[in-house]
Write a protein that binds this DNA or RNA. Structure first.
Lengths: 207, 207, 207, 207
DNA sequence: AATGAATGAGGCTTCATTCAT
DNA sequence: CATGAATGAAGCCTCATTCAT
């Protein structure tokens, strides 16, 4: 029943997503500043002006891209939080796995890169990204820690800690991969494990 | 009498540094891509074309800026390594202090930001920055760990760890400050201490 | 009804030719080096940037102009060679008539002038012009001479002569007209006849 | 006695000539339009601004260069005309030799090239060059013809001929050498002989 | 819905030329 | 006499964006 829509219509509905996908490719390869509408259009296989039927500016495309990735992120957080059993180390490792997956695979890292570079000119998007994406991650980590405290694995003092310090290596790794990896490769698996070990050892040690 | 040098001449010697300083301001405020020679010139109080007497391209200015910051970085490393006494925690805290100083104060973070944004188009500079700046930091941290192992404070197993994971929160903080701080301020002092605690606790705990 | 094509579309097809025509005007008046895209655009009644929809660089415009004049040149040669009857003098006079026509009327002389001035920086175009234009002329003259030898009007020895010497006065006249004519006018008709007489007398005299 | 001037003075007197020489090199290599004062200064081994002590503009340098070559040209003409004996063919061949020498060797051809390219913007120089250089050549050829008529070698009808047609191949050769020679070399010696033969045969044939 | 045509704003860079020593 | 420093004018080119079909 959903497939009975005329192809024209289906096409129309798909366009924004196609453009966003094309734009993300372009952003990844050329950075945001150097990306051109011409490049995005070419990747999307459409004309430059067609983009204006769906988006007002280049920034609007980026905004839409960022927004379109929110739902999944929310699901992710739910996924992390939903898991039922295990000790803190296991949970944390799983959360970190997920985060690295997103970051290494792509979109999230592209967003980070662009926000680092151009965030000052997109305060709304920065706020949005922080609120919808990063803070979910923080909340998730915070929840893990709270659970660890409840189960007695972690000391009460951990509660007041700025959780961003526990996520920092992941962001670092994401950016390093995109910038310095060619000149000094980072073994992402080993790094991830070091990251987990660092946090788990530190927090457990305080008990 | 020593000051009787003709101002024109003195000017000339000072110009490159002035231009670099102006460029760094501009880069910091507008990012590299959006920076214009006109903006740099205005900040430096000179004409657009005067810049070309000293630098061939915008990239060249950035390169000069990055290179001009190397000497200090090297001194810093010496400073860290030179200190004589204390336990691992004290040493590491001092090193982290220094790193945050550089990163918060300015230049280094500006470079990081630009390299994140445009590094793919400046492979030479990425390599240079990594070699001359980042690897010094890594080496310093590695030396601290080696010393901790020798004094028995840290277990032998620490030696094989990727030291970048110990520096990551500093880089993270530097970028966060420039990007998300307005929307979610980061208490740099508290974060720094959390960073130190994280690493020290984790490494000590392994002993 | 055939004329109901949208003007926008018709425009598009005509644009390159319009731009070329405008450019030739500009080149003729200002020379190639001093010609500006702004000037060409103004002559064509379009915006500066519109030119870039059709040509990549100023050189490309010149190249297109030169190429667009080739077909006619080829036809000319056919025309000369095709004529059926007459003695060598008649043939040669007709060929010279044609050459002077082209040269005096315009394009060809403009090209010559530009190539003289800037040819060292456009080796491909020099080669192209020589191959597609000048050598046709040489071939035509050579054919006339061969015919003259066959009919017995000219001695066999003429065959080995460098035919460029027979065309030289035409090139000279073309350039003189553009450079020295104001200060020392050249009666083109008289000169042309002198040219014909010179060559015909010389070649016949050898018989 | 002339050599007792202080070296500073000698230097000063020599400067204009040095600059002119450097400029001619530059003009020859890069053409007039693309030549820069910076390039000329470098060739002359002096500073860009020093040129302004002696010349007001780039055009002024060219003008001085052209004027400085006049004396020699005048001498040349005298040389041609002064020779005492021989028939018309011999005389003409000698004159042509001389002309080709000048044209092939350099300065004169550089002037021609520049005037062809930029003459429309230097009407005074065009007039000057025509008057001081070209017309000398024409006069010399005219004198040769007059002498030929007097000695009975040439018919009276030659007198009314536009002598430029007799010089044209030389100009042609000079330009061809600078423009098309790489793509289609011209054997200058053979061409020169063909030129002489053409003119001599034609004029003699009329007798 | 889609597009080809067109353009204005703005960036980098070159160069002749002036200024002050 | 000579020059290093500095600049304004001007050119080429890119790109986001609008217009008209």
């Amino acid at each position: 029943m959903k497939n009975t829509l005329p192809p024209r219509k289906r096409r129309k509905d798909a366009r924004p997503a196609e453009i966003i996908a094309a734009a993300l490719e372009e952003f990844e390869v050329r950075g945001f500043g150097r990306s051109t509408l011409a490049g995005i259009a070419k990747r999307a296989g459409i004309s430059r002006t067609t983009i204006y039927l769906y988006f007002d500016t280049k920034e609007a495309i980026f905004e839409a891209a960022i927004r379109s990735s929110v739902e999944r992120a929310i699901d992710d957080v739910a996924e992390i939080a939903g898991s039922a059993e295990g000790d803190f180390g296991t949970f944390f490792a799983r959360a970190v796995d997920l985060i690295y997956d997103r970051l290494v695979e792509g979109k999230a890292a592209v967003f980070m890169k662009i926000l680092v570079a151009e965030g000052q000119f997109m305060p709304d998007l920065v706020a949005f990204y922080r609120r919808e994406i990063l803070s979910k991650g923080e909340a998730a980590i915070g929840a893990l820690i709270a659970r660890g405290i409840k189960t007695g694995e972690l000391p009460e003092s951990c509660r007041s800690e700025d959780v961003r310090v526990f996520m920092a290596p992941a962001i670092f790794a994401a950016l390093w991969l995109r910038v310095f990896d060619k000149v000094d490769p980072l073994d992402i698996e080993a790094f991830k494990q070091a990251h987990v070990r660092l946090v788990v050892d530190a927090l457990r040690g305080r008990a």
